[in-house]
Design a protein around this nucleic acid. Structure first.
Lengths: 109, 109
DNA sequence: CCGATGGTGCACCCATCGGTGCACTATACA
DNA sequence: TGTATAGTGCACCGATGGGTGCACCATCGG
């Protein structure tokens, strides 16, 4: 578990930007082209392309060039799943630790 | 849900570094001072202090100066919980989307 | 009081991020 | 054919991240 995971790095980093989380939410409602993603964001096509690139590098989205358009869709759910597992695992030890702390407090008074 | 959350930004960003995840895992086994965190990491005290600062800013750890030592412990589990919720929520729509895609494929053939 | 220890503040370095503009290619469409 | 549209590649910018070293302060142990 302690092995440093580049996948986790990329995934968490990709999720750390509201613009990118917005793209994911948008893609959750169906595929979109780069222009369609850029529209509501107020960003340049280039800016969007970079964000999508980061999301794609993390495996969170997949893109495909069809005609003169690049279609973006969500990637395999396993990528998010890995990040979710990390959080769940550590949240358990977290709460375990808090339990121990509370027992310690009770025992001390 | 679509509201940009600075908390999520900070949390996901803090988790995007293996060194910081290592600190969290270490703190999961009990409190530690900055020197104790720096020891196995091979980093400077200053480097560790910055990482702890980022984790603290995200609410993932809490620190307290006791004597000439700074004690670090895990923060409230709610901080991790918020990030976990985001992932869980979106993983569900993720899988929902895949279901729809599979139905589409089946219907098309 | 004195020395060693644990932290802090600051300035600095280099790499990367977020974002832009511009020139360019490739496709769609009339 | 010509023209508008969708992306791409590249260079650029300011801000920030990760990390260091050094000078300094505060505290603990004699």
């Amino acid at each position: 578990m302690g092995a440093p995971s580049a996948t986790l790095d990329a995934t968490f980093f990709a999720l750390s930007d509201p613009q990118r989380r917005g793209i994911l939410e948008r893609l959750g409602r169906g595929t979109a082209t780069l222009s369609q993603l850029a529209g509501p964001s107020g960003l340049t096509l280039n800016g969007i392309k970079k964000h999508v690139g980061i999301l794609e590098f993390a495996g969170l989205v997949q893109t495909e060039k069809v005609g003169r358009v690049r279609e973006c869709r969500l990637g395999p759910a396993t990528t998010l799943g890995e990040a979710g597992e990390w959080i769940e695992t550590h949240r358990r030890t977290w709460e375990g630790r808090l339990d121990r702390f509370e027992r310690f407090v009770e025992g001390a008074e």
